[in-house]
């Protein structure tokens, strides 16, 4: 029984790490820009494809992952320059920019789908081959799990250092706390925003790469992950990094570990597996005190 639970662990950890990384990027982006960027799914998708194609052409998985991150970063920055910043400079409301991000997401996803359809890339499996490292119960802990956990650790440590110790990180916190004051303090708000966008895109791209190593991908992979990433970020109130990380783990484990537990306890059919994270997010939302929420989540 414990062995079986342990067997669920590697996959849960992998999913958790993926969601957590992208969600932390989303939260960071939200803190600085006040935008819950819907197009983050697309940065993930590009990460998936770059990593899959590079590993298929024999590049090593770690370099591919970094390049996937770089691609995500570039796209996140371009979308900001081409659409979001322009909108804000024209006096668009935050809600309008959010809706524009929905539009941007569709534009990128389906233009890419057209390309993928023509190039016959609608369904793709990466060149990553996973090798068992240790066995937990009956299931192996593979080099992919190890890679994901190391990447997540590096991300968490790196971001913590960045945000608490560096000038850029402090500026991000300053902007998050009071944008006008940050501006009149002489903090180059737009430049910090661009740096933030690059980081968000990078994290999304990296988590996309890990996803591509885990399973086959298609142009909607990022969109499928988007809901989980948003759920994780909602658990973290879009403001708290530790809570967002926790959110990633709640959502990531719910699907595997949670399904297994419910199956064991109540005999729930495994066909309902995709539903479990939804229940988790609904439970979290219901549990929250409405009025506390009003204060914490602005727009």
């Amino acid at each position: 029984m414990i062995e079986e639970a342990l067997g669920q662990l590697p996959t849960s950890l992998l999913a958790s790490a993926l969601y957590a990384m992208a969600a932390v990027g989303l939260t960071m982006n939200y803190s600085v820009t006040r935008l819950a960027d819907f197009a983050i799914g697309e940065y993930i998708t590009f990460g998936c494809y770059v990593a899959a194609l590079l590993t298929l052409s024999q590049l090593d998985p770690v370099t591919s992952m970094v390049l996937a991150g770089a691609t995500g970063a570039l796209i996140a920055l371009s979308v900001d320059e081409l659409a979001y910043k322009r909108l804000e400079r024209r006096g668009a409301t935050l809600l309008q920019v959010f809706i524009a991000s929905v539009g941007a997401s569709f534009t990128i996803r389906y233009l890419f789908s057209i390309y993928a359809d023509i190039e016959d890339l609608l369904f793709l499996t990466s060149g990553f081959s996973s090798q068992p490292v240790v066995f937990l119960g009956t299931r192996p802990l593979t080099n992919l799990h190890v890679l994901a956990l190391i990447t997540l650790t590096v991300t968490v440590v790196g971001l913590t250092y960045l945000i608490l110790r560096t000038k850029v990180g402090k500026a991000m916190r300053a902007i998050a706390s009071n944008r006008d004051l940050a501006m009149v303090s002489g903090i180059p708000v737009w430049r910090i925003r661009s740096i933030t966008r690059l980081l968000t895109g990078f994290l999304a791209g990296v988590s996309g790469a890990l996803w591509a190593y885990y399973t086959s991908i298609n142009p909607e992979s990022g969109w499928r992950m988007l809901l989980w990433v948003f759920s994780s970020a909602i658990i973290g109130n879009f403001t708290s990094f530790p809570l967002t990380l926790l959110g990633g783990f709640v959502i990531g484990s719910a699907e595997n570990l949670g399904m297994w537990a419910l199956n064991r306890a109540f005999g729930l059919e495994t066909a309902y597996k995709p539903l479990i994270p939804y229940i988790a997010i609904a439970a979290v939302l219901l549990y929250r005190n409405r009025y506390r929420f009003t204060r914490l989540v602005e727009l």
């Binding site: 524009a100 929905v102 539009g103 569709f106 996803r109 389906y110």
Partner: peptide, 11 residues
């Protein structure tokens, strides 16, 4: 795909 892309571009 084209239909959805046009929707996004329109928005």
């Amino acid at each position: 795909y084209l239909r959805y892309a046009v929707m996004g571009i329109l928005i």
